[in-house]
């Protein structure tokens, strides 16, 4: 059952939002142009000829300092942001239904213990995935959650980086280099009791189908002992997929799987494969139902979220078919079996 009621935003509200966005943009442009006109000292000084300014080491990208974003004050601000604007945004645009949160019940702290850190590994289609994950992850973990975000994208500027760190508690993760530094930092945070959202696919899907899982999460889990929670997000790609200019509101579904840990002596590669398979099964579960997904899994016929082998238009065509099935197939309420009271 959906734990979040779907509340479509009324048209009027959307109009108001659009108007607000337009006017903000207008203001920003006008402020910028005013500053541009004013000149030094309101602007950066120009550099005299022949003089080379020594380059300071970059504080952006993987080196972005986010320590402050985990201070109590920042945590409090983030809690307000998460439960207020972020949740409203997610509900307005993505209307999520959350399934399977009960699978985390056993990991909830009893009495006064601290929550055990978990590593959430959703599939990744859209920038919406992060707000959606943050607002869907159940309570004890939601308040102590960091998100591994692409250092080259989210931390490319001071403003973007600060915002990402404050609002989403994002951590820069270096995608190019196998950034030792990022990994160490994350390991330390998990040891400190922070849970993590990390996208094993490494980036958003370019075409709506899934991508291969990278070994990072499996490695982190083996190293820290924090269980992996496979997680499947359905529908964000269609709402705000890679390359889309503005979101097209729709419905989404978030499914949590049973937490899993590496078996005795299991290699990171095998564990990673197991995680990928778990997410695939959840994907099947979100499109069909628990039992069908189990049967498919047992038969080895779980649909591959990475899509069919073939390329070209048929790939997109199949994806659309699947989307249709997702919304109009089995999910349509069947006839009521017992009358309401």
């Amino acid at each position: 059952m959906a734990t979040r009621p779907s509340v479509p935003i009324p048209l009027a509200a959307r109009r108001v939002t659009a108007r607000a966005v337009r006017s903000t943009r207008r203001t920003t442009v006008s402020v910028r142009s005013t500053i541009a006109k004013a000149g030094f000292p309101y602007r950066k000084p120009s550099v005299p000829g022949g003089i080379s300014v020594p380059k300071e080491p970059s504080k952006l990208g993987a080196n972005f300092d986010t320590e402050w974003a985990r201070s109590p004050v920042a945590n409090a601000v983030r809690a307000v942001v998460t439960e207020g604007p972020l949740r409203m945004l997610v509900h307005g645009v993505a209307t999520p239904s959350v399934y399977g949160a009960d699978r985390l019940e056993d990991f909830k702290p009893r009495d006064d213990e601290d929550a055990r850190p978990l590593i959430f590994t959703p599939n990744h289609h859209s920038h919406l995935d992060t707000p959606l994950s943050i607002t869907s992850i159940p309570m004890p973990w939601r308040r102590k959650l960091v998100v591994a975000a692409a250092a080259d994208y989210f931390f490319s500027s001071q403003l973007k980086g600060t915002a990402a760190a404050l609002m989403l508690n994002a951590l820069p993760l270096d995608r190019e280099a196998t950034g030792r530094k990022s990994m160490e930092q994350i390991t330390d945070l998990i040891a400190d009791g922070w849970s993590l959202v990390i996208y094993p696919e490494g980036g958003r899907s370019p075409d709506g189908w899934g991508q291969d899982f990278k070994g990072g999460p499996a490695y982190l889990s083996s190293k820290t002992g924090a269980p992996i929670v496979p997680m499947f997000i359905d529908g964000t790609g269609a709402i705000f997929g890679k390359g889309m200019k503005r979101p097209k509101p729709g419905k989404t579904k978030v499914v949590f799987g049973a937490p899993m840990t590496a078996a005795e002596g299991e290699s990171t590669r095998r564990f990673n494969a197991r995680i990928e398979r778990a997410v695939s099964i959840l994907g099947d579960e979100s499109l069909t139902d628990f039992w069908t997904a189990r049967q498919n899994a047992a038969k080895g016929s779980t649909p591959d979220p990475k899509g069919p082998e073939f390329q070209s238009w048929r790939r997109t065509w199949t994806l659309n078919e699947q989307r249709k099935r997702g919304t109009t197939g089995l999910r349509v309420r069947q006839k009521r079996v017992w009358p309401e009271l």
Binding site: M1, Y99, D289, F290, W291, R333, Q334, V337, W338, L341
Partner: peptide, 27 residues
């Protein structure tokens, strides 16, 4: 008879959603 919300509570949403609509979960 159990109400739907009671069945969902007892067997969970996953089992309910998978079986009840097909008439394979009943009382």
């Amino acid at each position: 008879r159990m109400h739907e919300f009671e069945l969902r509570h007892a067997v969970g949403d996953r089992v309910y959603d998978a079986f009840a609509p097909r008439g394979m979960l009943y009382q």
